[in-house]
Amino acid sequence: MRLRTLTAGLTLLGTALAVSPAPAQAAVQGHGDARHDVVRDDAGTDRPAPDNRTADIRRLRVNHTGTALSTTLVLDTIAKDHWGVIWQVKTPEQGRWTVQVLKFGQTKDFTLHHRGKTVACADMTKQVTRSTGTVHVVVPRSCLDDPAWVRVGGGAFASSSDGMKQYADDARLDGEVHQAGLVLGPRLAAG
């Protein structure tokens, strides 16, 4: 099932999308996402799920400063349980990194992954504001090996408590998700 792979396996870094090199842009980038474009895994086939609000991304904001990468996803609603947000970060030297914030039952996870392994990053912070549907993460650039630029994609997912219904949204796609990973934005140089 494609969504099951996305929700359970985004910490395994997907195949990089082929993109021609481009110069890095300013350090801040915002991206609005279409409303009601969530998809549901229905027996291995992605189906539109426009009524789902718990995985529906409204905005992605990325700020790459001289000291940190700050990323924010704004969702229509944050579920009480069984949800997660994921950012994939591509850097020039080290490839893809994954930052995830998850809540499934008693399990809460806030981690940085690189090449399939958890990376220790003591100064990484997160803030979840349920009233505004906002999940904000700050990752020190030193934890990403001080990249000259980054490209960032954001995704959200939610599931029923039994895991039988799974929903996902990619901030940079309308009404679909890719099994290979999140769609990345433009290069952002450290500002």
Score class of each variant (00 low, 15 high):
Ala43Ser: 12
Glu176Cys: 02
Pro186Asp: 13
Asp174Gln: 12
Glu93Arg: 15
Pro186Phe: 03
Ser160Leu: 07
Gly175Tyr: 02
Gly95Ile: 10
Ala171Trp: 00
Thr134Pro: 00
Thr132Lys: 05
Ala180Met: 09
Thr111Met: 10
Asn52Gly: 04
Asn52Leu: 07
Thr7Glu: 08
Gly154Asp: 05
Gln100Pro: 00
Arg61Trp: 08
Thr132Asn: 06
Asp42Ser: 14
His114Cys: 06
Thr132Trp: 06
Arg172Ile: 02
Val62Glu: 03
Val183Pro: 06
Val139Gln: 03
Pro48His: 07
Asp33Gln: 05
Pro186Met: 08
Ala27Trp: 09
Val19Asn: 09
Pro21Arg: 02
Lys117Gly: 05
His136Thr: 13
His114Gln: 10
Gly44Ala: 09
Thr67Arg: 14
Ala8Asp: 14
Pro23Asn: 12
Ala120Tyr: 04
Gly181Leu: 10
Thr118Lys: 15
Gly32Arg: 09
Val38Gln: 01
Ser160Tyr: 05
Thr129Pro: 00
Ile78His: 04
Thr15Pro: 04
Met124Asp: 08
Val119Trp: 05
His64Trp: 00
Gln179Thr: 15
Thr67Glu: 13
Gly66His: 11
Ser159Tyr: 03
Thr15Glu: 10
Lys90His: 15
Gly32Ser: 15
Gly44Gln: 11
Ala22Trp: 11
Gln100His: 11
Val177Asp: 00
His82Phe: 10
Val128Tyr: 09
Ala34Thr: 12
Lys103Pro: 02
Ile78Leu: 14
Gly105Trp: 05
